[in-house]
Design a binder for these strands. Sequence first.
DNA 1: GCGATCAGCGCG
DNA 2: GATCGTGCTGATCGC
Length: 364
Amino acid sequence: MQKRIHELAGIEFNLNSPKQLAEVLFERLQLTGGKKTKSGYSTDAETLENLMNEHEIIGLILEYRTLAKLKGTYLDGLIPLIDPKKDRLHSTFHQAVTATGRLSSSDPNLQNIPTRNEEGRLIRKAFYPTVSDWRLVSADYSQIELRILAHLSQDAHFIDAYKQKQDIHRRTASEVFDVPFEEVSSSLRDKAKAVNFGIVYGISDYGLATQLRIGRKEAQGYIDRFFEEFPAIREYQTKIIAEAKESGFVTTLFQRRRYLPELSSKNYNLRSFGERAALNTPIQGSAADLIKIAMIQLQQEIEKRNLKGRILLQVHDELVCETPREEEELFKVLMKETMEQAIQLSVPIVVEVYSGDNWYELQK
DNA sequence: GCGATCAGCGCG
DNA sequence: GATCGTGCTGATCGC
C-alpha cells in the first residue's frame, strides 16, 4: 500500500509524517488545501475526506492511516506489555487525573480499545478470561448522560420521553423538526442525535454545522428549535453558568467540584471554553459518580456471596467482569440490578448486559 | 541521546 | 474561534 501511494505521488516520502504528506498533497499534487495547523496545512481525516474526489491517492492514505494506527497502538503496542509469566495484560487505573471525576487508564490504556470499525473491533478477540471456559460479562449504561441531563434540568418533555421508554433521538427529531414521532426518518434521527450530543457539550451553531455538514444558519435553527421544545434545558444551562460565574465552580450530583477560573477570563475563547466545561462537567461527572457507586456495591455483592467472578475493567459507562460459566447468569442479573439501582434519578436508569467467550463476541 | 511538543486518532 | 473528557504513536523540535 505504501509503495502504491509513493507511485501515485511520484516520490518516496515518510507517509507517517503529516508535514511531508502535506508537502506532497498541497504542493507537489496541487490539491486544495483547507484547514491549517500551527505549522501548516492539516492532513487530518476530515480534511482528507473532503479531497476524496480530487485524487485517488486520498483513499489509500486514509486506509493506510487506519491500519497504521491499529498495528502501532494495538498490535505492536500491546504485545510487549503482556506479562509473560501470567500471559496477562494489566492496565493501571487512575482515580485522580481527570477534571470531571472519571477514571483514566494507562500503560496500556484499556479504555480505548477499538469498537467503532469492524477491522479494529477484531482486536477485542485478544481479550478473554483468565481461566479456560470462563465467560466475559459486560454491562453498560444506556444514554446515561442524556438521562442525567433530564434529571438535572427537570425538563418535562425529556423526562416524559424516558418514562415512556421512547427513543430519545427520535423524540428530539419529532419535536425539533415538527414531524410525527412515528414518521421520523433515519436521517432526521441522525441530525437530532448530533443535536442531543451537542447540547451536552455546549455546542455552537458553527460546531453543529461542521458536524452535520450543513450551513451555520440552518444549524442555529435546529438549536433554537431544540430550546423552544425543551425550555427547561435552556433555563438549566443558563442557571448553571450564572452560578458557576458567581461561585467559581460547578458540582456533580454527589458534590464533586470543578473550579473553572476560565469563566472570568477576558479572553473570549478561554471564557467560552469555561462555559462549555460548566455545562458538561455536571453531566459527565455525575455519570462518573454513578458508576463508581455501582462498582463499590457490585464488589460488596461479589464478596458477600463469595463469588469467583470479578470485575476486570471500567470504561466510563461500562463494566467488564470475568466469571465461571456457572456464575454467568447471576452476574448478568447482579450487574444490571446494581448498576440500575445505584442511585435514583427522575428518569429510569437502563443497563444492557452482554456475555461471551471474549470481548469481541459479547451478545445479549 | 532524551524529554517535550505537535499532529493525528483510538475510546466514552 | 468554534462540542466535553481522556492516552498513545511517530515525527519533530530543542537542549
